[in-house]
Amino acid sequence: MLDYTHIKCPVCGDAFKEDDDIVVCPQCGAPYHRACYQEKGKCIFDDLHEAGKEWAPPAPPPPKVEPSAEIKDRECPACGTLNSHSALFCNRCGTSLLGAGQPDQKPPQAPPPFVSPAPPVSRNAYGGVVPPFSFDPMGGVSPAELLDEGISFGDASKFVRQNTTYYMPVFRYIKQTGRNKFSFSAFLFSGAWLLYRKQYKTGALVAGLMFCLYLAYLLATVFVSAPLLAELAGQVGMDITQGFSPTNEQMLAISQLVANDLTMYLKISLPLLCLLAMLVVMIVVGVRGNKMYMRHCVRQVRQIKEHGARGSDVSLTLEAKGGVNISIAVCMFVCYVLLVNVVPLLL
């Protein structure tokens, strides 16, 4: 007879004891407490009966192996602690035990700490050290580098003062290549930009020329081109009081009238020629503006340094004589607004 001790009853789940009243299913051999079997009235393993199989006791669980019972034969190469045979890392310091136990193997060395390289040291126009990641007023140009004979970029930056990060690299480019570098500020504002940068003689000349060209454009439009177009419109049957919106036939007739008289064509094109002349002046100033300003700075710095040899503070004089003239820029803006909005009303 089988020993059912410690096997659990399939109905109540309690383990059988030596003095329990146990009955066995005559078909499959499953054990029950007598009271449990009588409660169910039959064996509960119908699947075994249908398959013609016998009940088998469950396999006993494998014996647990305590970690402390495992052989400790893996010595940590760092701290010397003995660890279990299957351990991969030291349970004391965490060092890898792969390869432990090999007497000729040296413990792994930690990589040296990363030390970032020291940032480059740059100096401003006055010789002071510029901290890393700070604004460089010289735009990467060394203040000690010579711009012209006896004049350094540091001297030029003191005279320029505003926007040296743009002008110092531009001056160096012009000096090294001998080519101009286009200036959009000089192109857009022409004479006003020259006056703003204290190039008074050239600025007054260019500003006066631009004023005369614009005034010529207004006069040519009001007194020459517009009356002539009105006369031509009347000849082809247009009513200009309703606006200048000719049909294709009327435009063709006007074109034929103008083509037969070259003088009439020039009179109509006179305002456009004035605007074209203004554009040419703007392009010339834009192309040559930076080089003109560099020569102006060199000339002024040389004069200041020659007079400064008598004892005056050259640096303070450079800052006072250089820089920009904001008041004249405001004045030029007001004059431009009056010229564009008021003068056409007077004409």
Rank of each mutant, 00 (worst) to 15 (best):
F187V: 13
R197V: 10
G203A: 12
R288Y: 04
L232T: 04
L215Y: 14
D261Q: 07
T202M: 12
P227F: 08
Y173M: 07
C274M: 14
L229G: 10
I283F: 14
L218K: 06
V206H: 04
A216T: 12
W193P: 03
N180C: 14
F159A: 02
M168A: 12
A216D: 09
N260T: 09
M292Q: 04
L228F: 06
G178N: 12
G178S: 12
I254N: 00
V285D: 06
F159T: 00
V170E: 12
M278A: 14
K291P: 00
K267D: 04
N248D: 08
I254S: 05
K201P: 01
T241C: 03
Y167D: 03
S255W: 00
R288D: 03
Q256D: 10
V281Q: 07
Y293I: 02
I268Q: 09
V160K: 12
V236L: 08
V285N: 11
F184H: 10
F244Q: 04
Y293K: 12
M210D: 06
A207R: 05
K201W: 09
F189W: 13
A253F: 03
V222P: 00
P271K: 00
F244G: 04
V258H: 09
Y200L: 13
N290F: 02
P169W: 01
L279T: 11
Q199F: 07
Y166G: 07
G234S: 05
I283D: 00
L252C: 00
V284S: 04
K181C: 14
A192V: 07
A186Y: 14
L228Q: 06
V281W: 03
G286F: 03
M238W: 01
L229K: 14
K291V: 10
Q176A: 15
I174Y: 09
L272C: 09
L194V: 13
A216K: 06
R295S: 07
S269F: 05
G289I: 05
Q162S: 12
R179P: 05
V224L: 10
L228V: 08
A207Q: 11
C274E: 01
S255H: 06
M238C: 01
G203Q: 03
A277P: 04
G237L: 02
L195A: 08
N180Q: 13
A220D: 12
V258C: 04
S190H: 07
M210R: 01
Q242E: 13
F187K: 15
R288V: 00
W193F: 14
T177N: 13
V160C: 05
L205A: 15
L215I: 14
A233S: 14
I283C: 11
G289C: 08
F187C: 11
M292I: 06
T221K: 09
G243R: 10
L194N: 06
F171P: 02
Q199V: 11
T247Y: 09
F159S: 04
F223K: 11
S245H: 11
R161L: 13
P246I: 02
C274W: 03
S269H: 01
Q162L: 14
Q162H: 11
F244I: 10
K198W: 15
M282G: 06
M264Y: 12
L232W: 00
N290H: 05
V285C: 08
K181D: 15
S269W: 02
Y196P: 08
V170I: 15
Y167R: 10
K267I: 03
T164G: 15
S245G: 07
C274K: 00
R161H: 08
T177M: 11
D239P: 00
M294Q: 06
